[in-house]
Design a protein around this nucleic acid. Sequence first.
DNA 1: CGGCTTTGACCTGCGC
DNA 2: GCGCAGGTCAAAGCCG
Length: 186
Amino acid sequence: MDNYTGLIFPSSSSSPPSSSSTCSLSINMSSSSTISHGLVSEMEVLNNNLNIGSPDPIRSSLGGSEMEDEVMKRSEGSDMKKKGAVKKVKKPRYAFQTRSQVDILDDGYRWRKYGQKAVKNNKFPRSYYRCTHQGCNVKKQVQRLTKDEGVVVTTYEGMHSHPIEKSSHDNFEHILAQMQIYTPSF
DNA sequence: CGGCTTTGACCTGCGC
DNA sequence: GCGCAGGTCAAAGCCG
């Protein structure tokens, strides 16, 4: 099938993606460790441009940082008021569009679905996945666009701290090879 | 039997 | 303060 993959970049006003192709590769490949977290901290901007879910920029309520995965848990269901001690650290998020019949890109990592929500202004639900590798807190969201049902938007949050698990790695490289830089010109 | 998906409930942040 | 929308949890069920 024809599936193009448009990489969505954090189109911040200050730092245009100069060598974007290298950045794209770093999304999920094992070399991602070379990318500093500060590289993309403004996913909201591009999400806004995309109108993924709502006209608002994403509210970055995904405040989960690496450590408070436990903290975020409702402790006893009674007092989970420890958020005051938790400082919100925004993880960098990366999104890219894929024109595909299937929602899930086989990127070589193993994901476990932990939630699904209906999103406003979108007839397709958004699915939430977490990397199953122990100690790896990478999450991703998968959403199909209402206005173009063939387009799937995948948003990654965090960096994998481990190599790709499956050998289908080549598959993802193939996808990456077809990547086009998405330039939000609207 | 273990891992994964489904799904409703719960929590939080934000706008009004 | 209230309501809405997004994000997460966890129990139950399914499947290999």
